[in-house]
Amino acid sequence: MEILEIITKCLAAGVAAAGFGMLFNVPQRTLLPIGILGALGGLVKFGAMYFGVGIVFSSFAAATVIGVVSIRMAHSKDSPPLVFYIPSVIPLIPGFFIYRMMLGIMSLISVSSTEVYLQNLITTVNNGTKAIFILISLGIGVAVPMLITRKETMKKKEPGG
């Protein structure tokens, strides 16, 4: 992947994140930060993939970075973190693998020759496991920073009893 391609893909991820923010009716002051956060997630993911990291770990890293930055943004923009991280991780969803998996499952229903069936089974399982692991890593990657920092903010701001 070329560097230029990474940059345009990052911009695309930012646009997609802001678009989804609008769909979820986020406050106007958070739209630009969401776009930046989406682009940052794209940068981490595609950047890591450029250096040869697997797609699952790249997605996990991107989701974690989004989680961490969304907590910072939540403090400065006075909105809960989920307003920032949900639209921003949506561009990282492995739509293409899910689609390939669905097509594969569909072909398994109709194929009769054993050889083609095996070939399709292998690609379907490959695409499917990738898709599922990426989805799980996105969810957990976003949740982990929240769980780590929460203890601290609770102590600072919640009442003693």
């Binding site: 695309a12 646009v15 997609a16 802001a18 678009g19 989804f20 609008m22 769909l23």
Partner: peptide, 23 residues
């Protein structure tokens, strides 16, 4: 107020185009 319908439609459409570029 929500964002106006046409604005949401166009930006989500742009998001779809952006997705397509990513893939």
């Amino acid at each position: 107020p929500h964002y106006s319908q046409w604005l949401v439609l166009s930006t989500v459409g742009l998001a779809g185009a952006a997705f397509c570029h990513i893939f």
